[in-house]
């Protein structure tokens, strides 16, 4: 039987490693994939995902189950980490996520970027985040708006622009 997440978080607060492990197994894959789609850098995305899990271990008392689902809280942390890292890199060098200094490929299995992934990476950061959170991460529009610290109307506006730009990008690639 799966324990309720609120109960698991309460156990994590008491230092229960099994409860923590259960939560990491439930949430780490989604956070890792989200970060990969946002920063387009596998190594960096894994670092971000692990950072988020460190926060879950060290600062679980900051999570309020009455305010949000755990997945929303974790996505918000991941979102903030992604933005911090991308903005920091943009300040340091004019960083293009499509040409990150970290290898985008696995050592012995070069991964070709699909046209849709290239098109997604060409979107402005906020449009990409809105689209990825809404389309791939199984979150409601309210939750996505909360993660992005925005309103639902502003989110919808971003989504309309994101999908429109995506179509243009894909047409250009053809």
């Amino acid at each position: 039987m799966q324990l309720d997440e609120t109960r698991l978080v309460a156990l994590v607060r008491k230092g229960d490693q099994r409860a923590y492990s259960e939560l990491v197994e439930r949430h780490l894959p989604a956070i890792e994939v989200y970060a990969k789609r946002i920063v387009n850098d596998d190594t960096l995305a894994q670092d971000i995902a692990q950072d988020v899990m460190v926060v879950l271990w060290q600062r679980s008392s900051d999570f309020n189950p009455n305010k949000a689902r755990l997945t929303t809280w974790l996505h918000r942390i991941a979102h903030n980490r992604c933005i911090d890292i991308m903005r920091k890199r943009q300040r340091e060098v004019s960083w293009d996520p499509l040409e990150s200094e970290h290898p985008l490929t696995e050592p012995d299995a070069p991964r070709e970027q699909l046209p849709i992934d290239v098109a997604l990476m060409r979107l402005p950061e906020s449009q990409r985040t809105a689209l990825v959170l809404t389309y791939y991460q199984n979150l409601s529009n309210r939750e996505v708006a909360e993660i992005m610290n925005s309103s639902v109307r502003a989110l919808e506006s971003l989504l309309v622009r994101a999908r429109g730009n995506l179509k243009k990008q894909l047409e250009t690639q053809q």
Binding site: V24, P29, E32, Q50, M53, L114, I116, D117
Partner: peptide, 26 residues
Amino acid sequence: LLQQSNRVATLDATQVAQQIARGLPQ
């Protein structure tokens, strides 16, 4: 087309959990 994007998670969740919980204080 959006569904064609096939990013996958590769981290070992159990290992990550153990490393963090055993290595870092709360």
